[in-house]
Amino acid sequence: MSLLELDQVEKVFGTGSQAVPAVRGVTLAVDRGETLGLVGESGCGKSTLARVVVGLTEATGGRIVFDGEDVTNEVGDRTFRRKVQMVSQHPGQSLNPRLRIETTLAEPLRLLGVTDDPSEIDRRIDEMLTVVGLNPDYRRRRPGSLSGGQQQRVAIARALMSEPELVVLDEPTSSLDQSIRGRIVALLREIQERRGVAYLFISHDLSTVRRIAHRVAVMYLGRIVEVSATEAIFDDPRHPYTRALLSAVPSIDVRARRRRIVLPGETPSPVSLPVGCSFQERCPLVHDRCRREDPRLMESADGHLVACFAAVPAVSG
C-alpha cells in the first residue's frame, strides 16, 4: 500500500469563463521512504499540486488517500499536518524574518501537539539543527543573518520537527547556488536513509531530480504525461514532451554538442485548451487522433506509464 495516493485530483481556480484548471485529474502514488520526483516547467501546475497535497490549497475534485485513509477533507487538520510537511522554494521568504530560529523550530512541536515540555523542545531543536548540518549555536539567530543555504537547512529542520512521514519539497534547491545545491540534495538523501521519510520532490531542474528521485513523474499543463523509474525516464523517455525536455537540458560534457529537440512555441494558456491532447500544438509526433482524444496514462509491460498515443504501441481496446 502506498503512503500517499492521489486519485484524479483536480484544482480549478476561479469559475465560469475565467476558470483556470491548474491541476487536471492527477493520479499518483508515493510509497513509504521513496522519493518521487515531479518534473515540469513553470505553469504546469506542480506547485499547485504540492499545495493541494499539504492542504494549503483545497482540491476541487478527486480523492487524497494517506496511509490507506481517505483524507481529502482533512488535509488541513493537525494530525495530517504532523505527518505531511513541506519545504518551499525561497528559503529567505519561508522563514518569518522576525523570529529567532529556535522560535520557528519550536512552533511545530507545540502547535502540532508533539510536546509542550520546554526542555524536551530545547533538546529536539539542538538535535535537529545537528541533523541538518548546522551548529546548534544558530538557534539564537534570525534568518536575516544566515546564508541562503543555511536558511534552507532551517526550513528543512522545521519541516522535520514533527517527524513527518512525507515531506513535499517544492523546488528546494532552485534558488541556491550550484555548489550549495549539491549539499542540500546530499543532506536530504542522508535524512531519508536515516529516518525513512518519503519525499515528493518538485523541480524543474532535471539534473537535481536525477540525483535524488527513485521515480519521476513528468507534468505538462496540469496533467501527468509520464511516470517511471528514474533511470527509465532519463534513459528511455517515451513521451515526446519528456524527450524534448531532457534534450533541452544543457550538458556539462563539452565534447558532446548533441543535436537537441527544440520545441516550437510556448506552453499554451490553461484557460483555452484545445480539444484532445494538450501537447498537440508543440508535438513533433502529432496525428489526427491527438486532436480528437486526450490520451490517458497508459501502462506498458515494464510498468512505464505514458500519456501518448504515439509513444505506446497500440494495444487492442
Binding site: 548546522l134 547556488d177 550549495i180 543532506l187 542522508e190
Partner: peptide, 9 residues
C-alpha cells in the same frame, strides 16, 4: 560528484 552535506557553505 557527491559532496559532504555537513560542510557549511
Amino acid at each position: 560528484r557527491e559532496v559532504d552535506p555537513h560542510i557549511e557553505e
